[in-house]
Design a protein around this nucleic acid. Structure first.
Length: 255
DNA sequence: ATGGCTTCATAGTGAAGA
């Protein structure tokens, strides 16, 4: 079973990339972030045509999350019950016995911003939410755009980024608290190339110079960790014309 | 260096992303 996450930075614009990628990889589950479209615009028939079911929660202009799956999706839940939020950033569902939680964690903009305070509160809510989900499910995958680079190894220039949003102690501590719930960073279960990233700035030839960050993650519960045989960042879509600034990341679970 | 790209909402530029 393959489970993937990809911030597509507008599903309107990126639908051809998503369709091509699904056709190429036959991924079982794909979690999308930053749809940037209302639910009425969601391209359900294009995805059904290539064999995918979908659960989605979008909004105009910003945010928006979806779970695509080749097998039926059940027990869909949108948002976090104890944290009412206008911003559509969470969708969870059960697929083939796996509780899939798709998240688009706030960016935070900069440490002096209200958005940073919102991000920290949001992360507190997420930790409580995931704790509850894990009490009810043993096979849990928490994946998406975290907007957190967990360690300096996940940053192209740790000195430049020191103390900046995405790399602050408070954000990294929230990431460790998620791990503390009994989750594992799938990417770090395996040997990986140095300077592996999932996001590169559009500006200043960020991708060509590999000026990136690893901020998109797949966290797995113990039960899924033991069946995980690989975790891969696929940089190919980032090399295409008009790419998302994020690359997809996926895990393969042995059944 | 506060820009640099890209997208969206808009019909000028401005906000937001990371």
């Amino acid at each position: 079973m393959k489970i993937a996450a990809w911030n597509v930075n507008s599903l309107n614009v990126r639908l051809p990339h998503v369709v091509d990628w699904l056709n190429e990889h036959q991924t079982d589950v794909l979690c999308l972030q930053e749809l940037k479209q209302e639910n009425t615009k969601f391209p359900i028939s294009a995805l059904e045509e290539i064999g995918y079911h979908a659960a989605f929660e979008g909004q105009k202009t910003y945010n928006g999350v979806a779970i695509l799956s080749r097998t039926p999706i059940t027990d869909v839940s949108k948002g976090m019950l104890d944290f009412p939020d206008e911003q559509k950033r969470v969708i969870a569902a059960t697929v083939d016995g796996v509780r899939v939680i798709c998240v688009y964690i706030p960016n935070g903009q900069n440490v002096d911003s209200d958005k940073y305070q919102y991000k920290l509160k949001w992360l507190d809510a997420l930790i409580a939410y995931v704790q509850k989900e894990m009490a009810q499910h043993s096979r849990v995958a928490l994946l998406g755009d975290y907007n957190i680079a967990p360690a300096d190894a996940d940053v192209h220039d740790p000195v430049l980024w020191a103390g900046q949003v995405l790399c602050t102690d408070a954000e990294r501590s929230a990431f460790r608290r998620l791990i503390g719930l009994g989750l594992h960073d799938a990417f770090r279960l395996f040997e990986q190339p140095e300077k592996s990233f999932t996001w590169w700035d559009y500006r200043m030839m960020g991708f060509r110079r590999n000026h990136g960050l690893r901020i998109d993650h797949i966290l797995l519960s113990d039960a899924l960790k033991s069946s995980c045989v690989e975790c891969v960042i696929d940089k190919l879509p980032r090399k295409r014309e008009q790419p998302s600034d994020h690359a997809p990341v996926f895990v393969t679970l042995k059944t």
